[in-house]
Structures are given as C-alpha cells and as structure tokens.
Amino acid sequence: MNKRKLLAGPYLAIVLCGTIIPLLAILYYGFTDRAGQFTLANITAVTEPENAKALGLSLLLALICTVICLLLAYPIGLLLRRTKGEKKGLIIFVLILPMWMNFLLRTMAWKALLANTGVINAILEAVGLPGINIINTPAAVVLGMVYDFLPFMILPIYNVMIKIDNSLIEAAQDLGSNGFQVLTRIILPLSVPGIISGVTMVFVPAMTTFAISNILGGGKIYLIGNIIEQDFLMGLRQTGSGLSLVIMVFILISMALINKFDKNGEGSML
C-alpha cells in the first residue's frame, strides 16, 4: 500500500515547483525593493491615482459583465432544463464549439463588427437607424468580456438545472404553487451552487483580463491587468508583483464572500 503513495510523487513535485514556489516568488518580489530590502511600497502603489483608477474600473466592468452574463445565462438554463438527454450533448457542443476559434481572434472580430465604419453600423444605417459608437469605450470592453465568458456562466447553471428533480416541481404545483413560486422557491434555491460557480468563473477572468481591454479599448482603457502587463514589459517586477498580490486579495475576498453566500443559500434550502 505504501508504494502506491509514491505514484503521487511526480505530481507533488510539479505542484511544488509550478504552483507553490511561484506563488512564494510573487510574495518575495511584492514585498521587496530592487535592492532586495523589505518594503510595502509595491503594495501601496495601488493607491496611486492611475493604479487605483484602473483597479476601480476593473472591478466595475467585471461586476457589470458578471451581472449581464447571469441575466443572459439563467433563462437559458431554465429553457434548457427540460431538454432530453439526447439533446444535451448537442447543446454543450454548440456552446463549446466557439472556443475552438482562438479567443483573441473572436475578440478581434468584435472590433471589426463594432467599428464606426463596421458591419453593425452599416446594417443599422441601411435600415435607417442611428449608428453606435462604442468601439474603444468601456461598453465595448464589457461586450467582449460577456462574449468571451458567457459559456462559463451557462455551463454550470445548465449542469445544476438538469439535475433538479422534476417531481419536486410537480409536488410544488400539486400543492398550489404558481409558476413564479416554483421558480423562486424551488428552482432558484436549488441552482445556487451553479450560479456561484458561474459567478466566480466569470468574475475572476473578467477582472484580470488585459487582452480584451487592449483590443476593444483601443489601448485607451487601462484595467489592472493592463497595468500589470505594462509593469512586466518595462521590467518593473516588484511593482507588478505588488499589484498582483492586491488583485489576489480581491480574488480571495470574492471567493470568501461567495462561500459565505453559498452556505446561506444552502441553509435557506432546508
């Protein structure tokens, strides 16, 4: 039996070298200056106006993106809840297929679609509607985020929805619940785990992206990810690490909040 434990050895070595030591490396750089002396300057750098603004904008856009994804994905989960097993594969297939086109290219495609002289404006003009000028604005960045991360919200919600036992819903209906009560008292509480996993899977990448804001913001919109990317491109390892530690704190806070919310959600289910 003891020999079997050894099989985990290579994996544990990779985890040590690929996950734990690198995180310690960020901690080291985040808390030292160029001479290797301890400092908090890299962490407090987040209060500099430019960085604070970028962090605030990242949190705001990630929040908007998460809410929109949830509002779009939840009805899909509801609508697909009744699909039969045979169709399940097809739906997941349709959702995952776009991911096989490189996400940077798909984001570039939105740039072409949204451009002031782009396809969408040409269509709007043709039917006599006013054009939209959202390229290189935060709105375009949010659209790109929603587009790229929507499947990450749909899949977990769909996965909990299809597991909801139909007899529970029939029982509620037999006991006189109307459609709205079935939704708010049965389906919604039971789908909380899916919602939570969807929210984390959308919020974290949206908050930390730098490619989407770079492409659809035309280099004018600075999110915290852009600042960190710039820092590393300019060789400012210490500041970049300090800011990374700050966003890690935000990731941990959001996870903790979500965990708490999850417990409450499960508590109210009983």
């Binding site: 690198p22 995180l23 490396a25 960020i26 984390t200 974290v204 990448p205 908050m207 930390t208 730098f210 990810g225 960190i228 990317e229 590393f232 970049g240 690490s241 990374s244 966003i247 890690m248 990731i251 996870m255």
Partner: peptide, 10 residues
C-alpha cells in the same frame, strides 16, 4: 481558481 495573469507571472 487563480487569475491566469497571476499564474503566468508567478
């Protein structure tokens, strides 16, 4: 769970 950019720079 970690942000990709943090994994990458670490």
């Amino acid at each position: 769970l970690n942000a990709e950019i943090v994994t990458a720079i670490s």
